[in-house]
Amino acid sequence: MPDTLTSQQILRKQKMGEPVYSDDAEHIHRHIVMVLLENHLGALNRVINLFSQRGFNLESVAVGETEDPTVSRLTIVTTGNDRIIKQVIRQLNNLVDALEVEDLTEHEYVERELLLLKVKYTPENRAALMENAHIFRGKVVDITKDTMTFEVTGPTKKVNAFLGLMKPYGIVETARSGRVAMRRALVFGS
């Protein structure tokens, strides 16, 4: 289901100068849009153009090749007026390079995001950090005498929770993959 922006969140966005269309505040939602795209020059540009010309900030874009190397798969996360996003999706459908377009938030879907997080550690808190990572089923992928790099995968909420938990220890650097998402397969008879 789409993450509905609460009035609190809208206020917060307004304070931070992010676009909120006040007339339609109640129609503003986060959308996860999946695009299957010809894997060639300029195709990605055309997709991104359609969002940027409407003033949509793309919270994340994840691109990767699919099982068919001529096709790449995009997962775009953006927040905006439902009506306008619906229209942008129609325009995406018109792109010659777009093979398939779907607003996943209209369906049941699974989403994952990968986080690489470099934090400072001391001999005293090292065990606590490892324990946190363990709880989140994270892994240590790099370690030096005073920093550790964790890899955590999960839905964005889980990744955010892990980040919040680690923040007090002193974050050196983060890298997030952006969301990748997929529709759940239909289960017949359920």
Binding site: L41, G42, N45, R46, N49, Q53, V96, D97
Partner: peptide
């Protein structure tokens, strides 16, 4: 040219 005209064309090709 492809970049400049991207948002005002139905489609474009560069013959490489």
């Amino acid at each position: 040219t492809i970049g400049v005209t991207r948002s005002i064309t139905k489609h474009s090709f560069q013959v490489r």
